[in-house]
């Protein structure tokens, strides 16, 4: 494909069309490859290394109507120091909250490396006019958000109006400027693998820094198959533009074993340079606790209880 680079990480609509034209995925072959990657046996030092990666890649998340400043305070403290009993355990990557709580999160994390991410664009449904999404996003940025997690316009996607979906992301990217933009595909709604790859490529072409699996608000949030496919899209996009995008998996990743399997996918399909919070994130609330237990278990050789670890 002969594409002209618009800027560092975007493609024109016509080049985007070329990228998603004749896009094909075979479900059975895809699943077989992902199942095969899941047989990797990660033990000893490589397991500890993975667990530490996972902590540093976590976006500790709370996205509830009942969230308060008090709750954000607890979570931010945990984000900075996930295991007070073990100073070797690093901080997580970010806390992820609604726009109304960005200011509080920012205040709580100001003396740390922990970033504040905010969802926006009428998360989780995205069913609002673009103007509202722009306002939502601008507000979060004004409140101090370092990263913005938007949702794609699934209504437009399913109506076949890919142009509209693309244009919205372009518009929101303009609002974000240098603020990191993560675009949520909601793979559980897209259902087919071709849809997931198509939505991934459109999101990347429109300027997303990251593509993200799910809002976490539906039951089938993330899947390793979706992650694999998004990694393939990230690779294809890098081949065309040279731009190295990241992936965030969120929605239903609760234990270390599952999280390590995601890391294996990224490690083998994209390479170890993606094993960094700059390029891979887990959006999770309870995952960190399990990872902390596993780290402690590796050190002490005894299975742990969650009451050793602070509430998030």
């Amino acid at each position: 494909m002969s594409l002209t680079k618009e800027s560092k990480n975007t493609l024109s609509w016509s080049n985007t069309v070329e990228l998603i034209d004749n896009l094909r995925v075979d479900e059975v072959g895809l699943k077989e490859r992902v199942a095969s990657l899941a047989t990797r046996s990660i033990k000893k030092d490589s397991k500890l290394q993975a667990l530490n990666y996972i902590v540093t890649m976590c976006d500790l998340t709370t996205l509830e109507g009942e969230d308060t400043e008090g709750k954000i305070g607890q979570m931010a403290a945990k984000a900075i120091r996930p295991d007070p009993s073990n100073s070797e355990v690093p901080s997580v990557a970010a806390v992820c909250v609604y726009p109304a709580l960005v200011a509080k999160a920012k205040e709580m994390t100001r003396n740390s490396n922990v970033k504040v991410a905010s969802v926006s664009s009428y998360f989780p449904s995205g069913q609002a006019p673009l103007e509202s999404k722009i306002f939502d996003t601008q507000f979060a940025i004004d409140q101090g958000a370092d990263e913005i997690d938007i949702v794609i316009n699934r209504k437009a996607f399913f109506e076949g109006d890919y142009r509209k979906m693309y244009d919205e992301i372009v518009a929101l990217k303009e609002v974000c400027k240098s603020v990191h933009l993560k675009t949520i595909l909601e793979v559980g709604e897209l259902k087919t693998y071709e849809n997931i790859k198509k939505a991934s490529l459109i999101s990347l072409a429109a300027g997303s820094d990251f593509i993200k699996t799910s809002t976490g608000k539906i039951s089938n949030g993330s899947s390793r198959e979706a992650c694999y496919l998004m990694a393939k899209a990230v690779w294809d996009y890098k081949m065309v533009t040279g731009f190295k995008a990241g992936i965030k998996v969120a929605g239903g990743i609760r234990d270390s074993k599952d999280a390590i399997r995601y890391l294996v996918i990224v490690n083998e399909e994209l390479g170890p340079e993606w094993l960094s919070p700059d390029y891979f994130r887990f959006g999770a609330s309870s995952l960190v606790d399990d990872v902390l237990k596993q780290i402690k278990k590796l050190k002490t050789n005894a299975y742990q209880s969650s009451y050793y670890f602070p509430r998030g």
Partner: peptide, 10 residues
């Protein structure tokens, strides 16, 4: 570049 080597799992 950092790599993630899988420890032997025999």
């Amino acid at each position: 570049m950092k790599t993630w080597d899988y420890a032997e799992s025999i």
